[in-house]
Amino acid sequence: MHKRHTEGWSRREFLGVTLAGATGLLGLRPDLVAAEPPETTTLRLARNDFDLCIAPQFVAEQLLRDEGFTDVQYIKKDGVVWHEIMLASGEADISMSFLPNTLIYLDKGAPIVLLAGGHIGCLELLGSERVHSLRDLKGKTVAVFDLQLGPISFISSMAAYVGLSYEDINWVVYSPAESMQLLAEGKIDAFLVFPPEQQELRRKKVEHVHTVLNGTLDRPWSQYFCCVVAGNREFVRKHPVATKRAVRAILKGADLCGREPEQAARLLIDKGYTNNYEILLQALKEIPYGKWREYNPEDTVRFYALRLHEAGMIKSTPQKIISEGTDWRFLNELKKEMKG
């Protein structure tokens, strides 16, 4: 069963373990009793200030404390560091992350496990006048952060969906700010934009630039999650109770963002995540946060895995990724407990 340190067990914990063990031996699914306190009181989450769509994670700070975590840390690193990297290295225990990107890490064998769905398509593909549909991307120049990871994973998936391959597109590397500039000047043909830039650009109404694809509205992308809740595999294995509590807190945070975006925005401004209240509020309103109950995260994983496999960006089969990189037990229980 669970391997734990022998020191520092309380009698309650011990009882819980034997109970869980007994049920396990009897062949019943071990009920990860959430009545117990978490195995550890320290919880580390990833943070960077440009991915504001994962607001639920930040909003849930107090909720996490309520769940029993006395030490809630938001680890921030210099530069662009994907949450997946932090989860893989163990610097972060639980975090939300961008799904297509996470799949690429899973394919490489990173010790990450997907726990629950987050929100729907918080992204937009902006294009120049030469690009009106996904098909038009063929032979065009698209700007991305990085040629292996990040937005490129999503764009490749979209391209594969319409039959294009990685080689059909001319990839160039620029920062988002540069990309915006170049797109306006017509020097590149497309790039992927996230909140809050997404909302900023809409405000600016840049000429000769339009939306090719909106992740929250356009099908079939709007039927699938774009961000999910993930955890470090070792952490989840060792601390199932803590994991469940953490996930619950974040999902509650998601509910909060969906139902009361003003409150959520206020919280984030206060915490210093960003300065622009209006833009943030706009973003929070647009993103569908409440879908984690309805949509099937496993199907999302399957869908993106298929597309990435087609694009040649991952080698594993979707079935393998699902069987090794996902654990929906916590989600299933939380769905029962937290009826919308």
Partner: peptide
């Protein structure tokens, strides 16, 4: 209708994933 769409999506995705696994 939305739900139906997602269900049929799931069917297709599952079958395609099966296919990929089988190819491997």
């Amino acid at each position: 209708a939305d739900r139906l769409e997602r269900l049929t999506n799931e069917l297709v995705n599952k079958a395609e994933a099966d296919m990929v696994a089988r190819v491997e």
